[in-house]
Each structure stands twice: as structure tokens, then as C-alpha cells.
């Protein structure tokens, strides 16, 4: 009897919270197909005109491409730097290693706004023009701690002898890393990489403050918001959402399913 009450309460609670979680997204997607100028009730009918509009919007499509390049490139750099640092600090006794670890993860505890502002003041002072490059630099700063922490925490001591064996058989440090360490840690390296891509892809404030003419998608969407409630914003938001979910599902059912089992 008591169990039934708990079960029922659980279901009701879960349904309510899931409802809360999904409400705005459902509204967003639904009204991206609105046949009319306002993405709010009543729903006038189904139309894909707003999707046509965003694909025709050159600036939006350019921003989409920019976001993609910045996310991939900055995540790759963050992963490589994080991996090298994790290898050095997990495998060698360096003086001040606790301090180094602290320094490397420090940006994680600082708001993106402050990181952006700091970079902005320095760039202004040295007269370095803002561009997608400066956005990328900022994104590496925020993703490096993440990549380092994830990869560092997956470097177990049980890997030490395997790396020693590789060195013993004639591999130099680089070959050990490329042929032995990286393949062994591939699940966590990929996790770090995809998480970085997600963060960079979605990041607004750094991209907003450190870019000028070429902007990333969140910044372009931000400027769309000035037109208030607009089905075009619904359309681009829904598109990003649906594509992300598709990619996520693809990864879930191929990559992570496989690595999770071995």
C-alpha cells in the first residue's frame, strides 16, 4: 500500500518536472511551424516558411558555419593541450604539480563574463583587432580546464606499466602518447572533445564581446532577438535543437554504446 503511494507520487512528480523541462522547448518547436507572424497561440496552421527564411538568411548561415569552425578548432586545441598537460602531470613528478593543476583548472571557477572582459582589455590595450580568432582563444581558455580535468581523471595508475612497456620496446614519448596512451583513453578524450564542442557552440558572452564583423550563431541569434517574438528565431532555435539531438542520438547508439561495453 505504502509502496503504491510512493510509486504514484513519483510518477506525478516526474511528470510535472518533465513537463516543466519540456514546456518551453515544445512551444519553441511547435511555433517554429506557425503560419503567421507571431510564434504564440493561437496556432494558425502548419508552415515551413520560417525554415525557408533562415536558410535564405546569409548572415545566419555564415554564423552557423563560423560557430562550427570555432567549436571544432578550439575544442581540438583544448583537447591536445589538456591531454599533454594531463600526461605530464599524471605520469611525472614535477615540482609544484598541485599548483600547476590548480592553475590549469582555475578558469573553470571564473565567470565567462570576467574571462571575456579580461581578454578584451588586453586585446584593446595591444590594439589587437577582434575576430573569430580572438573568440577561439577565449573558447580554448574555458575548455582547456574541462579537457584537462576529464583526461587527467581518467589516467589511472594501471596504465603506467603499459606506457613503460611501449617505451621499453623503443617508443619515444610522442609515439607512446599517440600509439598507446591516447587510444587507451579514447572514450574520455572523445567525451572531453564533444563536451568542449557543445560548450563552445553554445557560448554567448565571450563570442559577443570578442568578435566584431564575423560572429558566431548565438551572437547572430541575439541580434535577431531585438525584433522581439519572431518565428524565425523559433525556426533557427528548433533547427539547432533537432540537429543536436540527432547527432547526440547517433553518438549514443554508435560510439558510446560501443566503448561503454568493451
Amino acid at each position: 500500500m505504502r509502496n503504491i503511494v510512493i510509486s504514484a507520487a513519483s510518477w506525478v512528480y516526474a511528470t510535472l518536472v518533465f513537463g516543466f523541462i519540456f514546456l518551453p522547448v515544445a512551444v519553441l518547436v511547435l511555433f517554429s511551424f506557425q503560419d503567421g507572424r507571431l510564434p504564440v497561440p493561437p496556432f494558425n496552421g502548419f508552415s515551413t516558411q520560417w525554415y525557408a527564411a533562415i536558410f535564405a538568411d546569409r548572415k545566419l548561415m555564415a554564423a552557423l558555419g563560423n560557430s562550427f569552425v570555432v567549436a571544432l578548432l578550439s575544442s581540438a586545441i583544448a583537447c591536445v593541450l589538456g591531454f599533454l598537460a594531463a600526461y605530464a602531470l599524471a605520469r611525472h613528478k614535477l615540482p609544484g604539480s598541485a599548483l600547476q593543476r590548480g592553475l590549469l583548472i582555475a578558469p573553470m571557477t571564473v565567470s565567462y563574463l570576467i574571462i571575456a572582459l579580461g581578454l578584451l582589455t588586453v586585446l584593446n590595450t595591444f590594439g589587437i583587432p577582434l575576430s573569430l580568432w580572438t573568440v577561439g582563444i577565449g573558447h580554448v581558455v574555458i575548455n582547456l580546464p574541462l579537457c584537462f580535468a576529464i583526461i587527467y581523471s581518467s589516467m589511472g595508475d594501471h596504465h603506467i606499466n603499459i606506457e613503460r612497456a611501449a617505451r621499453d620496446l623503443g617508443a619515444g614519448d610522442l609515439k607512446v602518447m599517440v600509439l598507446v596512451t591516447a587510444p587507451m583513453l579514447m572514450p574520455s578524450i572523445l567525451a572531453a572533445f564533444f563536451l568542449s564542442v557543445t560548450f563552445s557552440w553554445d557560448e554567448f558572452i565571450i563570442a559577443f564581446l570578442l568578435s566584431r564583423f564575423d560572429v558566431t550563431l548565438p551572437v547572430e541569434i541575439w541580434s535577431l532577438l531585438r525584433s522581439g517574438l519572431n518565428p524565425k528565431t523559433n525556426a533557427i532555435g528548433s533547427l539547432v535543437f533537432l540537429v543536436s539531438v540527432a547527432v547526440l542520438m547517433l553518438l549514443e547508439f554508435t560510439l558510446f554504446r560501443k566503448t561503454g561495453k568493451s
Binding site: 594501471h158 613503460r164 612497456a165 620496446l169 587507451m184
Partner: peptide, 14 residues
Amino acid sequence: PTTTMFQDYALFPH
């Protein structure tokens, strides 16, 4: 001109 055989074998798992 030495090689080591490790206690935990240290085979490359991949």
C-alpha cells in the same frame, strides 16, 4: 638491449 616483462603484463589493450 633489455626488455621488461611486467607483473601486470602491460599488454596494449587496444
